[in-house]
Design a protein around this nucleic acid. Structure first.
Length: 205
DNA sequence: GTGATGATTGGCT
DNA sequence: GCCAATCATCACG
């Protein structure tokens, strides 16, 4: 059974928290734990790239049948990584932040000497960190491409917070829809108050 | 072919 | 806080 088709996209987005994202580039394999996601719910979702059935070359990966496909797009010169969900609906989950695991030295280099949570606490930042800057994997299935998500060593979030998505102005109900999920207390979550960080547990059980 | 735009980021006021 | 950077895509003509 395909995990990315097995349940509503909102549930998948939550279930991805604590899973390991990996990207193999040349000799280097980057790994990080997913700590923040957003769900995009297809043609009815006015904040989605496929709102009202909008279909272009860019969004074609979303319309390919089957979930678990890669959807990368650019935004102001940055790359953002999504995973498609559902068997026959153009829905997806945006990976917004990861807790970097390895190789930290290379990740710091990719991020031009930044360190700590500045490395991967945002969707554009994490793609820079793992040196993912190509649209070439669009439409490919997770696992067949060098990009993969593993649940083998899944971490258990202590608490999952649910909030409105980031950067979606003027979309009425969809602007405030609670479709962003993150691990409470994890330092790598984007746009959080420093005081809410739990450096001891990082938000894991 | 040209110009506007964005699910963002980081530097400067 | 505000705003420019930066670039693939898309809507025009």
């Amino acid at each position: 059974m395909n995990f990315f088709e097995s349940q509503p996209t909102e549930k998948i987005a939550q279930a991805l928290l604590g899973a390991t994202l990996s990207y193999q580039k040349g000799q280097v394999t980057y790994k990080g734990i997913i700590v923040e996601t957003e769900a995009y719910l297809g043609v009815k979702d006015q904040a989605s790239h496929v709102a009202n059935g909008h279909a272009t070359k860019r969004t074609q990966a979303l319309y390919q049948p089957g979930g678990g496909r890669i959807y990368v797009y650019t935004m102001r010169g940055l790359y953002l990584l999504n995973i498609t969900t559902q068997k026959s609906a153009p829905e997806c989950v945006l990976i917004r932040a990861i807790e970097p695991l390895m190789p930290l030295v290379q990740i710091q280099k990719n991020r031009q000497g930044r360190y700590g949570r500045e490395l991967t606490n945002g969707p554009g930042k994490l793609c820079q960190a793992i040196d993912l800057k190509t649209l070439g994997y669009n439409g490919q299935l997770i696992g067949t491409a060098p990009i993969d998500i593993s649940f083998k060593t899944k971490k258990q979030p202590l608490t999952i917070a649910t909030t409105a998505r980031v950067g979606i102005p003027g979309k009425e109900a969809w602007t405030t829809a609670p479709l962003r999920y993150y691990v409470v207390g994890n330092p790598y979550v984007s746009k959080i108050f420093k005081s809410t960080i739990d450096f001891k547990t990082k938000g894991w059980v």
